[in-house]
């Protein structure tokens, strides 16, 4: 019996020893890298935003100028999302919104779009989707420039009729044999513009940004 206890304890001690050393190494590495990691993550987000809002067009810290948006049918969102506002000399330049097209061929398509203060689209990008490879995936900027056809478009001159794919009588191109995907995106962008029109002032209001930005731990 004592032999069992002794050998059991020995084994445990041995494992503990290795655990301590391992944890120490990990802690050291974490300490060395965590700041770099945080910086990198922010830089990446900025990189995505800068694709649709040119960095030269604003001068504020766009990542800090954020506000939380409740779920909204027009945006297609079901949870709270974050919007960022770009300003130049205090004046709002554009807002970056998250939107979801719920009716893609194979489920939801997540979008990020930037709307200028005058209601024109600065740009749209697909963040994630599950469309058929080779058929519906031309919405990715890496595969096809189609998504840039939204640049500069707005609801100022085009109504709901124009905001459709050509097959349905609208103004947007699509590829033969794959209309469901672009149809879903055009619809989602159109609705997002409607949301913007309805909430323009809230989005650009400065005080909200301050309160919300402070709320984050």
């Amino acid at each position: 019996m004592r032999r069992i206890v002794r050998s059991t304890l020995q084994t445990a001690a041995n494992l503990v020893f290795f655990a301590i050393i391992g944890t120490a190494i990990l802690a050291a590495t974490y300490g060395m890298t965590h700041e770099v990691i945080e910086r990198t993550v922010e830089a990446e987000k900025l990189k995505l935003i800068s694709q649709i809002v040119p960095p030269a067009s604003y001068d504020n810290d766009i990542l800090k100028d954020e506000r939380h948006i409740e779920a909204d049918a027009l945006l297609g969102t079901t949870t709270q999302t974050v919007a960022h506002v770009a300003r130049r000399k205090g004046e709002p330049v554009a807002v970056v919104l998250e939107s979801i097209a719920p009716d893609g061929y194979a489920g939801k398509i997540a979008l990020i779009l930037a709307i200028r203060a005058n209601g024109e689209l600065a740009g749209v990008r697909v963040v994630s989707h599950k469309e058929t490879p080779g058929l519906g995936d031309y919405i990715e900027i890496a595969k096809n420039p189609w998504i840039t056809s939204f640049d500069g478009k707005s609801r100022n001159i085009w109504g709901d009729k124009e905001w459709q794919v050509k097959k349905d009588g609208g103004q947007f191109e699509h590829m033969a044999g794959a209309t469901i995907t672009p149809r879903a995106i055009v619809k989602a962008v159109n609705r997002s513009l409607l949301y913007f029109a309805a909430h323009r002032d809230e989005l650009f209001a400065e005080n909200i940004a301050a309160t919300h930005a402070g709320g984050k731990p």
Binding site: N14, L15, F18, A19, I25, L26, T29, T33, I37
Partner: peptide, 30 residues
């Protein structure tokens, strides 16, 4: 390393190393 905890110790060592590599990649090859 005694035989009965050979594999746990090896896994521990490997896990530590992988996590280190992961941190490094996260920081420098995002």
């Amino acid at each position: 390393v005694p035989n009965e905890i050979r594999i746990p110790v090896f896994v521990l060592i490997i896990a530590v190393l992988v996590t280190v590599v992961q941190y490094l990649m996260n920081a420098y090859m995002y």
